[in-house]
Design a protein around this nucleic acid. Structure first.
Lengths: 159, 159
DNA sequence: ACATATTACTTGTGAAATGCAAGTGAAAAT
DNA sequence: ATTTTCACTTGCATTTCACAAGTAATATGT
């Protein structure tokens, strides 16, 4: 299912020209950085994960003020990397709903550690969340995943 | 020692104009992204943390091929954010040794989760490290910290 | 039915960040 | 004394970014 991703070396005995592997190195950290290493991607994921945002408009209105062309570009890239997916809203033909994939929701521990690190070394807001994470990191993560599963079920049942 | 960092609100009873708080928001994740959200910073930290790199030359030679001006800029920023520090090499007046601060070494859990995430969803290299992390994440982190403490001791004793 | 509004974008345009090559100055090695 | 090494800086072309404006496809209100 998550197969035809990065390799693409061979196919039926014939060596085929590599389609995707334009990574700077094999290092897993480098892979993460190439997918997430910019000033916006992780914030978009944060708002999907923690605030339940789904639509372009929500991402635009709230937030640290992302430019519309950058938002469109980041959503495209996140889709290309399999971190989010877009589906048309069944009730409003103009709308697209952006949802985290399994790969996307698996970023919960990464976000958690980044929040905890910043909160430990900078003056930051959202102390309630920080305190919750300090108290029981694993619970926060499993709650996030639980909510994600519920929301996906709702999508699926809508017909 | 690492005091005059981000706040800078007041000084001897007089309210002074804020010098640094140009963060886009109070969100701790945003703080992390503003300090680390680019294509190079975390890789530099990786090589200091996991490979023991200390000098400009090492960062240049190895690596995914960073440009020299970008490396200089990233090192400056990491210093400005208190994540690394530079000290002259006691044996070679040309050299500077870049070292992780406590704040820098505290990024170990963040790097670990990013490595595990990428390794779970992409085809990546350095499988020995990945396996070690999967087996006992906490041990990998405490080993990294232990090594950091030792190396700092060596620095301090050198006189 | 038709005008207006909303949603999710795209298209300029200038400014900033990035990548590449070459150069510089101080210290060390020969 | 000359050459090498190290840690950068400078200049320049390319790419990315931010801001503003515009557009096409729905949806809503009258």
């Amino acid at each position: 299912m998550v197969d035809s991703e990065v390799e693409g070396g061979e196919s039926a005995g014939r060596i085929v020209k590599q389609p995707k592997p334009k990574r700077r190195s094999e290092c897993p950290l480098n892979a993460s950085v190439e997918m997430l290493g910019d000033r916006w991607s992780l914030l978009i994921i944060r708002d999907m994960m923690l605030r339940g945002f789904r639509s372009y408009k929500e991402f635009m209105e709230c937030y640290e003020g992302i430019a519309t062309n950058i938002l469109a570009d980041r959503l495209r890239r996140l889709i290309a990397n399999g971190i989010i997916a877009a589906e048309p809203d069944p009730f409003d033909g103009r709308k697209l709903n952006y949802l985290l994939t399994a790969k996307g929701i698996d970023l919960a521990p990464v976000l958690t550690e980044m929040v905890l690190w910043a909160a430990a070394h900078e003056n930051t807001g959202n102390q309630p969340l920080v305190r919750q994470m300090r108290k029981d990191k694993e619970k926060v993560i499993s709650d996030v995943k639980e909510r994600w599963r519920r929301d996906h079920k709702v999508e699926a049942h809508r017909d």
